[in-house]
Write a protein that binds this DNA or RNA. Structure first.
Length: 266
DNA sequence: TACTCTGTTGAATA
DNA sequence: TTATTCAACAGAGT
């Protein structure tokens, strides 16, 4: 479930390889995760360089290597990063393996909605410039959010929260969690949200994102009881507040769960 | 066996 | 420019 918090967790898995040289790269260039990138070149160029640093932005990750090499990863729907022993043998969905002394860095993605990007140069890659403003940062003000919602005023708020250009890192479960805490029905038009309800949405958005990164990003634990998260996957999930059955419908093309009592208004 | 569902996103179309 | 729909993929569930 790679949203903001899970991405942060997976990024850190590869910290095990920091400062170590890449001895070999295992991959199959024709795999879909390499669409649009020169996988053979990557395989040829990366050995010999060291992993220097990594960062995550929303659902995107960037790994920086010596010799001006940059690797971008997106986990799609089922992507995972992990560390394995040095003798690791890739299986079916292990699309990219960076072999190092003592360990192997593994990118696995069954459905291959994820993606590998690659760049050589002294400055960060073009696809890492002009990133959307981080929702947890100081510059993500309520006014900025309001302007974005007005630009997409016809869109149901649930769909707007999933737009990575406005809310980088927010995915399906985080969007539902945010709306539940804000008392907003997922079909509410984005343009209708103003004043106190907009302030509320802004606060809950930032709260959920920060807490999720703290909890899930640390060791992949689930958010605690009391979060909608605990109930929204269940067939007969109940609102954590007053135990009413949650409603489930497709909104903005995605399965959404909400409490008809807490989130009544449209 | 066949059909449905899934946490993403980006291309095609309106 | 923005909104909608659908396909890319594999596996799990019914």
């Amino acid at each position: 479930m790679p949203e903001l918090a899970e991405v942060e967790f997976f990024r850190k898995q590869w910290d095990a390889g920091l400062d170590k040289r890449i001895a070999a790269v295992l991959l199959h260039p024709d795999k879909r995760v390499f669409r649009g990138t020169d996988a053979q070149k990557l395989q040829q160029v990366l050995p010999g360089s060291r992993l220097l640093a990594s960062e995550a932005h929303g659902k995107q990750m960037l790994f920086r290597f010596s010799h001006g090499i940059w690797l971008g990863l997106h986990l799609g729907m089922t992507g995972k990063l992990r560390v394995a022993e040095a003798s690791f043998k890739p299986s079916k969905h292990d699309h990219l393996v960076l072999c190092q002394k003592g360990c192997a860095l593994v990118f696995n993605d069954a459905r291959q909605f994820g993606r590998v990007l690659f760049h050589q140069g002294s400055s960060p890659p073009p696809w890492w410039r002009n990133l959307a403003v981080d929702v947890r940062s100081k510059s993500f003000t309520a006014a900025r959010m309001e302007a974005f919602l007005q630009r997409h005023r016809k869109l149901p708020i649930k769909a707007a929260l999933l737009l990575q250009t406005g809310f980088p890192g927010v995915g399906n479960w985080m969007a539902d969690e945010i709306l539940w805490r804000s008392g907003l029905h997922p079909r509410t038009s984005s343009g209708q949200i103003r004043g106190t309800s907009l302030q509320k949405l802004w606060r809950e958005l930032r709260h959920v994102c920060r807490e999720a990164v703290k909890i899930v990003g640390k060791d992949y634990s689930d958010p605690p009881v009391g979060w909608l998260f605990q109930e929204r996957w269940k067939r007969d999930g109940l609102c954590p507040i007053h135990k009413r059955p949650l409603r489930k419908e497709t909104v903005g093309g995605r399965t959404s769960a909400w409490c008809p009592k807490c989130q009544a208004q449209r």
